[in-house]
Design a protein around this nucleic acid. Structure first.
Length: 821
RNA sequence: GCGGACGUGGUGAAACCGGUAGACACACAGGACUUAAAAUCCUGAGGGGGCAACCCCGUGCGGGUUCAAGUCCCGCCGUCCGCACCA
């Protein structure tokens, strides 16, 4: 039962919010995310060890027990619905509907292939600079895989970011950068210098700086470009160069630092506006085949990479944009290209135009001649969902020699995984399985083959929130339920999902609109997004570099003198950085042990209390002790407040003495601001206010006064109700202690009495020349003149003025008065 | 390199529209209770000066706007995050 406390933080936040909203009278559906069952991310190891069924009864029982012991409220019938195999049935149906609409397709492309593991490497898997990974040389392979056409919605996904007002700015930015829209022009250049096949005799490039066409001094193409491949066939040196590029080219970081290298093909490209100018064509290592057309024209004057390249190979550098205050006669490019605004020079008919005007002119001329076309380019690629592994939702299609790709008929869904797969050899267990893939073609009945790729688990998480709205429906989505619940009012998750999961979910909502599963005008799945911080903890490493659990380590000393020792051996231990709790680093806390020792409420209170929820919380034993102390203090306090025998039916007194009045004001004010702070997800502030009010109530316990018994009773009840969402177990106990046999969780959220929220007399600060000198207690309704008179009459003000005449008095009623002298 | 966020006591942090900086908590110190410890309760505290009333300084650094700046503007410094040859 060792799980990350960090893992549960978003559930705690969501749970507090859900309990609060429910008490406020809202209908709340609070499913926990896909990862609540934690398994997809850990599948690599589990695939080998566990039984096929992802949701074994045992796994579910473990997770359920752990989450319940954290005090989380879950509607389990809904939760378990997505663990049911029927979820995959509906997901397969969605896939086939996407296929019909052209939103899913197959494409052949080059992939990094690990021959040792016999599998495709995911993008994020690191390969070293020489193309090795885990001791095996990585190959490139041509492979046909499945894709979702997310690029179809590139514009919409980008433009709609503006409507996501309740999303964090940085997530919106990350998504915009990821989509990476740029407007430009494709241009065709005629090639000369060798006999080329018709298809390769013109070179198409993409640029966003067509205004700089007269500054072009070379062409560059990607090593993977068909033209490069063609020329290399008769050229051993070029072959070697391309091979070299490929080796370096696999690691992105190495690539960014690598020197610009080129290989002159000997070919020449004809300048589209100056036919007498022939530009040399290079194969260059910094050109990506995956972006644009895999080819560019190089304009060294106005692009850093092109400038580096030109300097290295001695190519011409002609400035064509003149900075506003530079002189056309003397302006030259040094080490830095000029990237700013200006007017065109050295550019024939463009001279004197602005950059934008020059772009428009070039685009217009080239479109007329048919040698160019305006084009919007995206960094975003279609989503490759094929995985060559057992663990995942099977892709429900059948390959037939005569009928091609055939959808599995609805009646045969779901396609389920074989239970007797073996994992003793690397590679895809489905492909290797002796019988599973052999089936009859649903159309012609001939022998055919099942698709053995499974879907990326990101597919699973891209629509679960829709399925939750009607988890037992016969169709993937029940429109009525989806229309009622969607979009999700508040989504809570880690920043690690800023791009992929959140973008894929946005795509799915659109695609499911296109296939009729959702309303078309529902574009965005999550109206508001909150990214919570993690629970982090120090890491410890023993002498041999092995990670140690915090419970295995004894820490001595303070500050710089802090030292750690292995409890078992007494050996010194290295104290490492504060990192996200993870099993591999062993900086975790045993949840079962924690619950035994402190209880779930302490855990909840701790993660809510210290830091704002969007920041990381450092797990410390003293922090937990503090939370525990408070939980126990509340219990004692409620006992003290109920001990005098005043029952819940006692009539409200007609008059309250000053002590009772003060207590009631404090209670209702606290209720008011705690409500606001829970709503704004400022739990740490809500916690602080509850602390403060607890102190007030504690003081009142030892006082006497008219109506104070009743006021104490009221205060205790409000306190219990306020803390209920955060401390549900203690809350129920206290509620019973107060004499109720109902559940606190079922009580409506209390309303503060408006009259108690505003004071008759208030304290305002008095400044002289902007410095605070005194404060003033005055009627809330006091006029400007009254406040001014009272302030000027203060001895401290007179003293601070030191005889200077008063020039001006600024009065902000109910806030401050500033005397300028 | 590009883009973004942040910088407040010994620590985690509050401070809503520019209006009493440091709420609340942790740690610390002193006291009460106790044979003792734990637990609990009370008191203290940004820095400096003063017996005290009180005064001066203070939100990374330097400027600016304003009656008034942690908050707004300009320029630095530092930390963190994201993207990274995207033509």
């Amino acid at each position: 039962g060792r799980i990350h406390v960090g893992h549960s933080r978003n559930y705690t936040i969501g749970d507090v919010l859900a309990r609060y909203k429910r008490a406020k009278g809202f209908n709340v559906l609070h499913p926990m995310g896909w990862d609540a069952f934690g398994l997809p991310a850990e599948n690599a190891a589990m695939e080998r060890k566990t039984h096929p069924a992802k949701w074994t009864a045992e796994n579910i029982a473990i997770m359920k027990r752990q989450l319940q012991s954290m005090g989380l409220s879950i509607d389990w019938s809904r939760e378990l619905a997505t663990c049911d195999p029927s979820y995959y049935k509906h997901q397969q149906k969605l896939f086939l509907d996407f296929l019909k609409k052209g939103l899913a397709y197959r494409k052949s492309s080059k992939v990094n292939w690990d021959p040792a593991e016999h599998t495709v490497l995911a993008n994020e898997q690191v390969i070293d600079g020489r193309g090795w990974r885990s001791g095996a040389l990585v190959e490139q392979r041509e492979l046909t895989q499945w894709f979702f056409k997310i690029t179809k919605y590139g514009d919409d996904l980008l433009d709609s970011i503006a409507t996501l007002e309740k999303w964090p700015e940085r997530v919106r930015l990350m998504q915009a950068n990821w989509i990476g829209r740029s407007e430009g022009l494709t241009m065709k250049f005629a090639l000369q210098g060798a006999k080329l096949p018709r298809k390769l005799s013109t070179l198409e490039i993409f640029t966003t700086r067509h205004d700089t066409i007269f500054g072009a001094s070379f062409m560059a193409i990607s090593p993977e470009h068909p033209l490069a491949q063609h020329v290399a066939r008769g050229n051993k040196e070029l072959q070697a160069f391309i091979e070299e590029c490929r080796r370096i080219g696999t690691s992105e970081e190495a690539l960014a630092r690598a020197e610009k290298l080129g290989f002159d093909t000997g070919l020449k490209a004809v300048h589209p506006f100056k036919p007498e100018v022939k530009l040399p064509v290079y194969v260059a290592n910094f050109i990506l085949m995956g972006y644009g057309t895999g080819a560019i024209f190089g304009c060294p004057g106005h692009d850093q990479r092109d400038l580096d390249f030109a300097r290295k190979y001695g190519l011409e550098v002609v400035p064509v944009v003149l900075p506003p205050d530079a002189d056309a006669g003397t302006f030259a490019i040094g080490k830095e290209p000029y990237l700013g605004d200006g007017t065109m020079i050295n550019s024939a008919f463009l001279d004197g135009l602005t950059i934008d005007a020059a772009k428009a002119k070039i685009a217009e001329l080239m479109e007329e001649k048919g040698t160019g076309k305006r084009k919007v380019n995206y960094r975003l690629r279609d989503w490759g969902i094929s995985r060559q592994r057992y663990w995942g939702c099977p892709i429900p299609v059948i390959h037939c020699e005569s009928c091609g790709v055939v959808a599995v008929p609805d009646a045969d869904l779901p396609v389920t995984l074989p239970e007797d797969a073996t994992f003793d050899v690397p590679g895809n267990p489905l492909d290797r399985h002796p019988t599973w893939k052999h089936v009859a073609c649903p159309t012609c009945g001939k022998e055919a083959r099942r698709e053995t790729d499974t879907m990326d688990t990101f597919v699973d998480s891209s629509w679960y929130f829709v399925r939750y709205t009607a988890p037992h429906a016969e169709t993937p989505v029940e429109q009525k339920a989806a229309n009622y619940w969607m979009p999700v009012d508040q989504y809570i998750g880690g920043i690690e999902h800023a791009i992929l999961h959140l973008l894929y979910s946005r795509f799915f909502t659109r695609a499911m609109g296109a296939t009729g599963h959702l309303k078309r005008n529902l574009k965005e799945p999550f109206a508001a997004l909150f990214t919570q911080g993690m629970v982090v903890h120090e890491t410890y490493r023993g002498r041999n570099g092995q990670w140690l659990l915090p419970s295995e380590v004894r820490v001595e000393g303070e500050g710089a003198a802090r030292k750690a020792f292995d409890i078992a051996t007494g050996a010194p231990v290295e104290i490492g950085g504060i990192e996200k709790m993870s099993k591999s680093r062993k900086n975790t806390v045993d949840l079962d042990e924690f619950i035994d020792q402190f209880g779930a409420d302490t855990a909840r209170w701790f993660v809510l209390s210290d830091s704002p929820p969007d920041r990381d919380v450092i797990y410390t034993d003293v922090g937990v002790q503090g939370a525990r102390r408070f939980v126990q203090r509340i219990w004692r306090l409620i006992e003290d407040c109920t001990g005098d025998g005043l029952g819940r039916d006692a009539p409200k007194p007609a008059r309250f003495g000053p002590e009772a009045e003060a207590l009631r004001r404090a209670a209702h004010k606290t209720l008011n601001s705690v409500s606001q702070n829970i709503e704004g997800l400022r739990f740490n502030v809500a916690v602080a206010q509850i602390y403060e009010f607890t102190n007030t109530l504690q003081t009142a316990v030892s006082q006497t006064g008219e109506g104070l018994d009743w006021a104490r009773r009221e205060a205790a009840e409000l306190l219990v109700q306020m803390m209920g969402p955060m401390l549900p177990h203690l809350g129920e106990d206290c509620w019973a202690r107060l004499g109720y046999n109902t559940l606190l969780a079922d009580q409506p959220w209390p309303h503060p009495e408006a009259a108690l929220l505003v004071d008759d007399r208030i304290t305002i600060a008095v400044q002289v020349n902007g410095k605070r000198r005194d404060e003033l207690s005055i009627a809330r309704t006091a006029t400007r003149d009254e406040i001014e008179a009272a302030a000027l009459g203060l001895e401290s003000v007179v003293r601070a003025l030191a005889g200077r005449p008063v020039k001006k008095v600024i009065v902000v009623p109910q806030r401050i008065v500033n005397v300028v002298g």
